[in-house]
Amino acid sequence: MSRYLVDKFLYTIDRDPGLVERYREDPGGTVEWWEREQAGRILNCPVDEATTWLAFTDEERAALAAHDHVALFGLGAHPFLTLTLWIAMFERDFPEPLGMQRDYAARLSHLGLPYPDIST
């Protein structure tokens, strides 16, 4: 597993409003495109580099494609990265103030200490 690659995905998608919308509307396609076209370029790797840390695991790919922040947290994705991206993608779907943030926290409320390791 490459927590760094997952975190890099979340970070780069969140920094581009067009990619935020693309990921919101077509999560599986966006994950596939980013992994194929962007992962090596963003990480400044040679074109023919093909190590496992340049690819998501099946579990990471599935969690990213499902917008599953609970699974991503369990895999070690940094919660601040998922939270900021989820705000950009989903806050508009909640009419009440902080509704998305409350939903995000409620879905993680079953977790207790020690939390998964989020270091990269």
Rank of each mutant, 00 (worst) to 15 (best):
Gln38Met: 10
Glu37His: 06
Arg15Gln: 11
Thr52Ile: 00
Ser109Arg: 10
Phe56Glu: 02
Asp103Met: 04
Glu59His: 06
Arg102Glu: 03
Asp58Ala: 14
Glu32Cys: 00
Glu59Ser: 15
Gly28Arg: 13
Asp117Trp: 10
Phe56Met: 09
Gln38Ser: 03
Trp86Asp: 08
Ile87Pro: 00
Gly76Asn: 03
Leu75Val: 01
Met89Glu: 10
Thr30Phe: 06
Leu108Gln: 11
Arg102Ile: 08
Trp53Asp: 12
Glu96Trp: 04
Ala62Gln: 09
Tyr4Ile: 05
Gly28Lys: 11
Glu35His: 00
His69Met: 01
Thr120His: 08
Ile13Arg: 05
Arg41Met: 01
Asp103Pro: 00
Leu64His: 09
Leu113Asn: 12
Gly99Asn: 03
Gly74Thr: 05
Ala63His: 10
Glu37Lys: 12
Ser119Phe: 07
Ala65Pro: 04
Val70Ala: 15
Asp48Val: 15
Gly40Asn: 04
Trp53Gln: 05
Arg107Asp: 04
Asp16Val: 14
Asp117Lys: 05
Leu108Lys: 08
Gly40Ala: 06
Leu108His: 13
Met100Trp: 03
Leu108Met: 11
Tyr115Val: 09
Ser119Thr: 14
Asp103Phe: 14
Leu19Asn: 09
Ala62Ser: 12
Gly29Ile: 00
Glu35Ser: 00
Ala39Met: 05
Gly74Asp: 06
Pro116Asn: 07
Tyr11Cys: 02
Ser2Tyr: 10
Glu25Gly: 12
Tyr23Met: 13
Leu111Ile: 06
Leu98Asp: 13
Thr82Tyr: 06
Met1Tyr: 09
Leu43Gln: 09
Gln101Pro: 00
Asp16His: 11
Arg22Tyr: 05
Asp7Phe: 02
Asp26Ser: 13
Pro79Tyr: 00
Ile13Ser: 05
Pro97Gly: 10
Ala55Pro: 00
Gly40Ile: 07
Ile118Val: 09
Leu10Gly: 03
Tyr115Leu: 15
Ala65Asp: 13
Leu75Ile: 12
Thr52Leu: 14
Val31Tyr: 02
Asp7Cys: 08
Leu19Pro: 00
Ile42Asn: 07
Gly29Met: 10
Gly40Cys: 04
Glu91Pro: 02
Asp58Asn: 03
Leu64Gln: 13
Ile87Arg: 15
Arg15Ile: 11
Leu111Val: 08
Pro46Tyr: 08
Leu72Ser: 06
Arg3Asn: 12
Asp14Arg: 15
Leu10Lys: 07
Thr57Ala: 12
Thr84Cys: 01
Ser109Pro: 02
Arg3Gln: 14
Trp53Ser: 05
Glu60Lys: 07
Gly29Ser: 02
Leu43Trp: 14
Ser2Asp: 13
Ala55Trp: 09
Arg22Gln: 07
Thr30Met: 09
Pro114Arg: 01
Ala55Ile: 06
Leu81Ser: 06
Leu19Phe: 07
Thr12Ala: 14
Arg36Ala: 03
His110Leu: 08
Pro17Gly: 03
Ser2Ala: 05
Ala106Trp: 14
Pro79Leu: 00
Tyr4His: 14
Gly28Val: 01
Asp14Cys: 10
Met100Glu: 12
Trp34Glu: 01
Arg3Asp: 02
Tyr115Glu: 03
Gly76Phe: 07
Gly28Asn: 07
Leu10Tyr: 08
Thr51Tyr: 08
Glu21Pro: 01
